[in-house]
Design a protein around this nucleic acid. Structure first.
Lengths: 210, 210
DNA sequence: TTTCATCTACTGGTTTACCAGTATTTTTTC
DNA sequence: GAAAAAATACTGGTAAACCAGTAGATGAAA
């Protein structure tokens, strides 16, 4: 059990979230909010001259990638704990933020109690994932861990789609029928279990397949 | 000038390409082909027990990402030179393979003479980019180096698109009109200079914006 | 207070993607 | 040589994206 006062900072671009979190934590004397920031630059400047035990980090910052920021902060301050806050229930995002060193992932619909407990558990070295998040990750494991097998032709089609070519353009480039391109596209979407091309490209790039 | 015989291996999944390259190089006694491989595993196994000066690497391998493979090989064998072969004239790909350590990028429409000269130049420590490739990269520099500025709302829309949501679904999720979503989508495509969503997501992920 | 940026939403389209099924040929694997 | 996988291509659709322009409200910045 952590005996010293837990010093945290909040990084979220919604001032109302700051208010809300601070109001919750105000009733818990064992946790102290050293600062609240709405942008990464201010937060990083603060950390240059102050130390904090834990950061509540909204990964959905407007001008920077919160997932990348998490990685950067962990590299700079190895011992700091980071709890990611987000509305996202997308498995790739959760997995990535954890991979980048976050100690936990809390959805923004979490209760006050959950938030307090998450902060304490993080300081105890635990990984914080509530049931909902764990379920999301459980289904994620199969998909993130292994890329689906795609054939050489499918890969060519995938790369063309990523370049923004239409079905007609791809057909012309590869000397095949547009209907063949459409069949390959459909097969790719089935293999990646998505319903459209943007999601397909998103996953394929995340998996470093293109 | 390199005085010793240049020992190279070829990694390309088209046997005809092997034949072609070997036929070209056969007339140049100063270059020796130690092996030709159609998959990465065989090539890596070969390199465990043999050393080569240079690899002609098709980045469009069916079962592995040639760009990532380039990085892996350079990490394992720092001194080896890699010349990427491809039909791609897409700037992101060229830039990435160079960033991953390739000494040069040769389009598959290059002449015999160009290939020979590229191999020699690589051994001399030069960066091999013919005029066509340099032009492609020149236009690329502005785009790859800096992500366009997008607003907080645009970023939300971008993330939703990447998740595969339709315009109607995004509208419902963000409590705005589908027509508003369409306007944001259009603005994003203008900022990224693309014509469709797959290309948008491709660039956005490459730039780590989502 | 004014100007600029952002967000919102509409008209009136055209183009393209996605859906589900089916089937033949070619190539690869055993 | 047979079986399986891959590649090809079609029917008959519906759904969604993309295009170009226009414009008002709100919030932020100067």
């Amino acid at each position: 059990m952590y005996s010293k006062k837990i010093e945290i900072i909040i990084l979220d671009d919604h001032p109302l979230v700051h208010e809300g979190i601070q109001h919750i934590l105000q009733q818990h004397s064992e946790i102290e909010v050293l600062g609240s920031f709405i942008n990464a630059e201010d937060a990083l400047n603060f950390l240059k001259e102050n130390s904090a035990d834990l950061i509540l980090l909204d990964i959905n910052l407007p001008d920077i990638n919160g997932i990348e920021l998490c990685k950067t902060i962990k590299q700079l301050y190895h011992g700091i704990k980071i709890i990611a806050l987000s509305n996202h229930n997308e498995r790739l995002i959760i997995a990535k933020i954890l991979q980048n060193g976050a100690s936990g992932y809390v959805l923004k619909n979490a209760s006050s109690k959950e938030l307090i407990q998450a902060i304490k558990d993080a300081m105890d070295g635990k990984l914080i994932l509530n049931d909902e998040v764990q379920k999301i990750l459980a289904t994620a494991n199969n998909e993130i861990a292994e890329a689906p097998h795609i054939t050489r032709r499918e890969k060519e089609i995938l790369q063309c789609i990523a370049q923004g070519l239409t079905t007609a353009q791809i057909a012309e480039k590869l000397f095949i029928s547009p209907l063949t391109v459409e069949t390959h596209r459909r097969n790719l979407m089935q293999k990646f279990e998505v319903n459209n091309a943007p999601a397909l490209i998103h996953i394929a790039v995340e998996l470093k397949m293109i």
